[in-house]
């Protein structure tokens, strides 16, 4: 069993987690074009390398960020999403983690 380190709960079996997709800035829903919104919803980068991903620890309903090398499947770091709030492009995340 793989072990993933949850920033809130500590090391847990990977079976307790759910993958939530790539971290990417959300365009403004009020002003984004259909093309921009479709790209946000449906397109993934899929390049090999270190990626930022949303993961959910299901028993505690806690969302956090994983930095993972998708070539070697090595987990480099896990952290609370509040760290991303300093990035102006991710400001809208604040509502998501309330």
């Amino acid at each position: 069993m793989k072990i993933l380190h949850c920033p809130l709960n500590g090391p847990r079996n990977i079976s307790e987690f759910v993958y939530g997709g790539q971290v990417k800035p959300m365009p403004n829903p009020e002003s984004a074009t259909d093309t921009e919104w479709a790209a946000y919803v449906f397109y993934e980068n899929n390049s090999i390398g270190v990626v930022q991903e949303w993961w959910l620890h299901a028993p505690s309903s806690y969302w956090f960020i994983v930095e993972r090398h998708n070539g070697s499947d090595t987990i480099l770091r896990t952290y609370d999403p509040s760290e991303l709030l300093s990035n102006p492009g991710m400001v809208s995340l604040e509502d998501a983690i309330q």
Partner: peptide, 11 residues
């Protein structure tokens, strides 16, 4: 501990 026991979520 917020985890799983017998494959179901438990606190």
């Amino acid at each position: 501990a917020q985890t799983q026991a017998a494959r179901v979520s438990v606190i």
